[in-house]
């Protein structure tokens, strides 16, 4: 078969293609690991894939890219995730 030279623009997969999208966040999800029942609803529903599923099915949040939509807090049945305003003084 004849080989053709690629003469079109090609993009390559990179983490954070639009920069650190965590900067978009207004509300920040706070995870309470004590309350978590490992149902993984937050993991499957996260639109940004920033909920990291660990080997033992516990979860962590990647704050570098989390856009702070609050879906994880909304789908959590046991209220283990709450949304808090970014930069709030403790």
């Amino acid at each position: 078969m004849k080989k053709y030279k690629i003469s079109t623009t090609i993009s390559y997969p990179v983490k954070g293609a639009m920069g650190r999208t965590g900067n978009w966040r207004v509300f920040k999800p706070i995870l309470d690991k004590e309350k978590c029942v490992k149902c993984l609803r937050c993991w499957i529903y996260c639109p940004e894939a920033t909920i990291i599923r660990n080997n033992d099915d516990t979860v962590d949040i990647d704050f570098e890219y989390c856009k702070g939509c609050g879906i994880c807090a909304n789908v959590c049945k046991v209220k283990a995730i709450i949304m808090e305003r970014e930069g709030k003084k403790k």
């Binding site: 990179v14 293609a17 529903y45 639109p47 940004e48 890219y65 939509c69 879906i71």
Partner: peptide, 17 residues
């Protein structure tokens, strides 16, 4: 891969995953 141009709460990326 995280860090795309999708709006926060986008259903398209949710379905795509």
């Amino acid at each position: 891969i995280p860090g795309s141009a999708a709006c926060p709460g986008c259903p398209a990326t949710m379905a795509m995953r």
